[in-house]
């Protein structure tokens, strides 16, 4: 019986999800599930109980801020760590990300290797 960590990726660009999956598969023993819009992401977070969520901000149907806030307001789900991974890079976006309760904020410009480091750090703490 392995202790596989389940990671939910909410991101509307399939290529991004695929690349992150390749990187994570190389790096550790994770189970990756993914959603391509905010609504689907929220439902999967509620039903599949992931150990960590990677959340984009600009998503169809429901934006990432709202998904994050809804999860962090719920007693059952508020303990799931959320990393916001977004193309938005301005200080203002960072502030909004913090205010909606996310555990970390990584701009996409930094690249996925920085994201993966953060994932490992959060999952091992």
């Amino acid at each position: 019986m392995t202790d596989k960590k389940r990671i939910l990726i909410v991101e509307d660009e399939k290529a991004m999800v695929d690349m992150l999956t390749i990187r994570l598969a190389k790096d550790g023993n994770y189970e990756i599930i993914s959603a391509y819009d905010g609504q689907e992401g929220l439902q999967m977070a509620q039903k599949q109980n992931p150990d960590l969520i990677i959340l984009d901000l600009m998503l169809p149907k429901l934006d990432g801020y709202k998904v994050c806030r809804m999860l962090k307001f719920s007693d059952i789900h508020k303990n799931i760590p959320i990393i916001i991974y977004s193309a938005r890079t301005q200080e203002h976006d960072k502030k909004l990300a913090q205010e909606c309760g996310a555990d970390a904020y990584i701009p996409k410009t930094l690249g996925q290797s920085v994201l993966v480091d953060k994932i490992k750090k959060i999952l091992s703490s």
Partner: peptide, 23 residues
């Protein structure tokens, strides 16, 4: 600019994956 940035970051990620010899 936002529309341009998305394909750009995907391309960058792809290059990175290969460059870092993950594949």
């Amino acid at each position: 600019s936002h529309e341009l940035r998305t394909p750009l970051s995907i391309t960058r990620e792809g290059l990175n994956l290969v460059l870092e010899e993950v594949t």
